[in-house]
């Protein structure tokens, strides 16, 4: 692990975020120790996620990616240091920071539409408007025809689309994604990545996307944070534009190699 010199911790991203949103919000972790009480997983975490940025977080299984995300969601408190949104400490979960899970987190007794309506019901959107907004989001993720289906009646890819629609339905300013496509096959996965980029466009949301797939991270992230051995090993800018064909671009190949070597694989 000779990567500490590459770390650009807490530095603002040099690449201008593609989707500058005036309603953007900034997430900051400062010298944070993360984990469950008595069981710290990540130490000395410094991260600054700029408004509208997509930060991809990569690392091997069990390196604390989910812990990082749960802390940003407000489900866990930092054991030391600070976790802040726009300079204010995070206190518990909030509808402003939606979380998309890897596993099925849709409520199985609600239809896809019912699941997407849930955040709208929680935030007190009037009943007739709820349905219209849910339908519109389901349309954007290509699930109009399955709106009335129960989650277990549709495919895994469709369930993840529904989760995405549910997370975005109430216009959160932060979207946290915990290996959302981890259980999908390669084809479905790349389709979902394209869909995600498309759906996020114009929302101005700040996104933290956790994955163990380096290529997914390089495709989606404006920057990539590498977790290794309980620390943030490095944060790298990813050259734009976002283009799947650019995989054999020399700069990209070099970056990919550097990322993989930082992760010790």
């Amino acid at each position: 692990m000779s990567t500490s010199s590459e770390a650009v911790e807490t530095a603002a991203p040099s690449a201008a975020p593609a989707r500058e949103g005036e309603r953007g919000t900034r997430l900051t972790l400062r010298a944070a120790v993360l984990g469950r009480p008595g069981a710290p997983v990540l130490h000395d975490v410094g991260l600054d996620v700029a408004p509208g940025e997509i930060l991809a977080v990569v690392g091997p299984s069990g390196c604390g990616k989910s812990t990082l995300l749960r802390t940003l969601a407000g489900l866990l408190s930092p054991l030391a240091g600070a976790a802040e949104q726009d300079g204010r400490p995070l206190t518990g979960p909030s509808a402003d920071r939606a979380l998309v899970f890897q596993e099925d987190a849709l409520l199985p007794w609600r239809t896809l539409r019912g699941n997407v309506k849930l955040p709208l019901a929680i935030s007190g959107v009037p009943r007739p408007e709820r349905r219209a907004r849910a339908e519109s989001w389901l349309g954007r993720v290509g699930l109009s025809a399955q709106a009335g289906q129960l989650p277990h009646r549709v495919s895994g890819g469709q369930r993840q689309r529904a989760q995405l629609a549910r997370a975005l339905a109430d216009s959160p300013r932060v979207v946290l994604m915990d290996e959302p496509f981890g259980a999908l096959d390669a084809q479905t996965r790349s389709g979902m990545q394209d869909l995600l980029v498309e759906v996020l466009r114009g929302t101005g949301a700040t996104v933290v996307f956790v994955t163990h797939d380096v290529d997914e991270a390089l495709f989606l992230g404006d920057r990539v944070a590498l977790l290794s051995a309980g620390r943030v090993a490095a944060v790298r800018d990813v050259p734009r534009p976002r283009d799947r064909g650019a995989l054999d671009d020399p700069a990209r190949v070099t970056l990919r190699r550097a990322v993989l070597s930082s992760l010790g694989t």
Binding site: P93, L99, L118, P119, R166, D170
Partner: peptide, 21 residues
């Protein structure tokens, strides 16, 4: 399933909402 509850909490749901939903 813990994810059900965490999902509703991160959508802004409080105790009553978690109980009912």
């Amino acid at each position: 399933t813990p994810a059900w509850e965490e999902a509703v909490r991160t959508l802004g749901g409080g105790r009553l909402r978690i109980l009912g939903s």
